[in-house]
Write a protein that binds this DNA or RNA. Structure first.
Lengths: 333, 333
DNA sequence: CTGAAAGCGCTTACAG
DNA sequence: CTGAAAGCGCTTACAG
């Protein structure tokens, strides 16, 4: 390959200075009509386009946004990535992905590398993300948005699903359909999004004048087997629930397995409802009624917030945006 | 934020030249024990790390690989991305994603931008990708790997699923289970991977001494509705098939819908088999027997090929790597 | 064992 | 309306 052509080659051939070539590209100062035309034609002739790397070094901005996620293979994150791309591509940003596998050391590493690469902004996702993980970026003056982090963090924008609302909305939906005895198969730990969903469930029950019964909430693994075990347990109660909320769709599918095995008609004998709306929810039979967030829209929202930070448009107070989910009614409830 | 510290600050504080600091970082020339220690400690003290941008401009390599895909939301691509990251992260590469939505103009645009950003290599994916789409990159001397492209392209590495083998393997599996009258619901067009799968099917039939009957292959949309329509059509034949191959899992799920509606027992009355092994395949009931590729492994393989190109290790002949799929036996066949 | 200087390819104050 | 020169922050031939 021939020596790469640079701005000075264009300038020489057009009989002007690099300064002028730069200005016809940027439009940042007036260049006479004829000079502009001449420069343009030389650019075409030589096939020159400004080298982004040099421009980045000079301008101290790379037009790059880092997206750091635990596992790009989890369908939630590609959708977020898509939404982010939706809004940042137009103004010329590219996105660099980082996969942490949830490992704290990988997280620190990636943040550090993104800083040395001078990305213009970072979106850091993961349900257990903490502000301290991104401290080096913040110190370097790089705008950071946390997704899924649960605590408002000093000086950092946080965007997250409203899990409490999700639990509330799901529960109200079931109550509205005439179910009053509702069980909940939740995750093993008492914190994080699953716990918030249970809180929302409890709140909806209470505000409908129904009693919260702790026997009806069982803790299981986040898996199909967990869902199966959870439903077994609930069905052994003297007064088993008529409907069951499952902390995610996979758990709900496990519950559906035992309902089918026991010959229970869904939703007539037992209503089953999940959270997340994974692809399979629509494809199984009976199809699964569930609660859907909108990850792509979440990606768009972070993009907008960050773009605002980058052009100084977003207010200086850190934003905290909660995404309200909605129910996707299907056959199972 | 304070003025960013640079190599000359470190050098000054350590009483050496930037040259020496650079060398203690790179290890490319010997630096006396004591100097090295002093420089290191100043580096820590000042928290300095080399600016990748400046280094990239100087060294003419960005440690960046572009991954251009039609739709990052299609689960195949995140898996490829994961595999790519698996192998390129360790040697210090990052990956920049581009989403084309299959639009030819977006493809050209993205390739051009990746070139101006001086990425070190490009993986360009999409079932209809052509070599000409990436010509600007090739001209700029950037190694390119095509994924899913079907023709070997001058000077470009191509990695793709072996769809012909997939069709063959699926068909042999059904024959082995005693099915001799096998239908095929394929896509609307007569080319691309779906057509290759049909070819493989035909080849397997022939080599098993069975007759290929064109009435048994029907063309439908790539959707659940397409699968339903396809099976209807096949069942209306005077001698309907006892097993049906569906060009992808979604189509197979549509076929399963009509089997269930008609009260056919699967697989006793009718065996159904798909391709791709989407997440839902394992979750529906009956679970779907299908053909799985290994997208993550494909991502790893492109990573290896490209890394080889970058360090001059891969032979100069363009590689053509075909990925053989395997059957995932489940309940439906 | 170490340093001064050029240069990667741009943009932008400064000057006219 | 336009240009010469400095500088973004590194690495590396060249020299000693």
């Amino acid at each position: 390959m021939a020596k790469r052509v640079g701005i000075s080659d264009v300038a020489a051939r057009a009989g002007v200075s690099p300064t002028t070539v730069s200005h016809v590209v940027s439009g940042r100062r007036h260049v006479s009509e004829v000079t502009r035309a001449r420069v343009r034609s030389v650019m075409d002739e030589l096939g020159w386009e400004p080298n982004e790397l040099a421009r980045s070094l000079r301008m101290q901005r790379t037009q790059t946004i880092a997206l750091i996620v635990p596992d790009i293979t989890n369908p939630f994150y590609p959708s977020v990535a898509r939404g982010l791309l939706d809004v940042v591509s137009e103004p010329g940003y590219q996105v660099l992905i980082g996969n942490t596998d949830g490992s704290p050391s990988a997280e620190k590493d990636l943040v550090a590398r993104m800083v040395t690469r001078s990305v213009d902004a970072i979106v850091f996702a993961g349900y257990y993300s903490k502000a301290s993980d991104v401290a080096p970026a913040v110190e370097a003056g790089i705008p950071v948005a946390l997704m899924g982090g649960r605590k408002a963090s000093a000086g950092i924008d946080v965007l997250t699903s409203d899990d409490l609302a999700a639990g509330e909305i799901a529960t109200r939906y079931l109550i509205g359909r005439g179910y009053h005895r509702i069980g909940f198969i939740t995750g093993p730990s008492g914190e994080g999004p699953p716990a918030d969903r249970v809180k929302g469930y409890r709140r909806a029950l209470t505000s409908a004048g129904l009693r919260f019964n702790s026997q009806l909430v069982v803790r299981e693994e986040f898996s199909r087997a967990g869902g199966a075990a959870g439903l077994q347990e609930l069905l052994e109660l003297r007064k088993p629930p008529r409907a069951v909320l499952c902390t995610n769709d996979m758990v709900a599918i496990g519950a559906l397995d035992v309902a089918r095995a026991r010959g229970l008609r869904v939703p007539d004998d037992l209503a089953v409802m999940g959270f997340d709306d994974i692809e399979a929810a629509a494809l199984i039979s009976p199809s699964l009624t569930t609660i859907a967030g909108d990850p792509r829209e979440q990606g768009r929202a972070v993009g907008r917030v960050l773009l605002g930070r980058l052009d100084g448009t977003t207010a200086s107070l850190p934003q905290r945006i909660l995404f309200a989910p909605s129910v996707v009614p299907r056959e199972s409830a």
